[in-house]
Simulated scan of single mutants.
Amino acid sequence: MKYTVQNQRTVFHDHYKMLKASVSYDTFDGDTIETERLAFHRGDSVAIVLAEKETESILLTKQFRYPTTLHEEGWILEIPAGSLEENEAPEECIIREVEEETGYHISAAEKIMDFYTSPGASSERLHLYYAEVSESDQKSDGGGQEDENEDIELVKLPIADIAGGIPSTIIDAKSIIGLQWLLQKKK
């Protein structure tokens, strides 16, 4: 099966981009569909399931997310995450994001998987990692980058609290995927 993308153009560009293109693609019954499609293009990102050994806890972040206010949610719990900068390797980005958001230093992380966050609308591919830290690995308070208007609170969730399932207070997909992976790994 084949597809073509033509006349791709930027129709909106602020912090993120919206692209529009003419596409044609083969159907499963041998026909061809020709249409226009939009793609929210925000670049790739990283996220990490970060376990603190001494406290047997997962380190989460709590921060304000404007899009969730459309469903009357403001601050949500998430695993640490962030956007890749231009020409930055995911392995470098996750180390930087862990330090910026949590204050912990990691030197490496185990790759879990890559996945698309919302393939019908967004080009974003997320690189998901796992690492263990010790309390002594916390080198600063974290809290995010002031110049990016971040205000992040570190939250420790005991792993025992997720043994029976992901708490309903965690409503972020990447966090649910990461914590489900952890539950399977711990079996």
Rank of each mutant, 00 (worst) to 15 (best):
L126E: 07
G178A: 08
G43R: 10
V49M: 08
G178D: 05
Y104C: 00
V49H: 00
G103V: 07
G103E: 03
S22R: 10
T61V: 08
Q180N: 15
Q184I: 01
A47H: 06
E101R: 02
E101M: 12
S122P: 05
E78C: 06
L154Y: 04
E52H: 01
F115T: 10
D141Q: 07
T27H: 00
E54N: 09
T169M: 07
E110P: 03
I106N: 11
S175I: 03
I159H: 00
K174R: 12
D172K: 12
A131N: 02
S107A: 02
Y25K: 08
A21D: 03
E86Y: 13
E146M: 05
A121K: 12
S24G: 12
Y3S: 06
Q63M: 05
Q180G: 14
G164T: 08
I79F: 10
I106F: 11
M18E: 11
E52L: 01
L182Q: 01
Y129M: 04
R9P: 00
S118M: 06
L19E: 15
G74R: 11
A89Q: 14
R37L: 11
R65Q: 07
S118V: 09
L182K: 06
E132W: 07
Y104K: 00
F28I: 08
L59H: 03
V46L: 01
A108L: 06
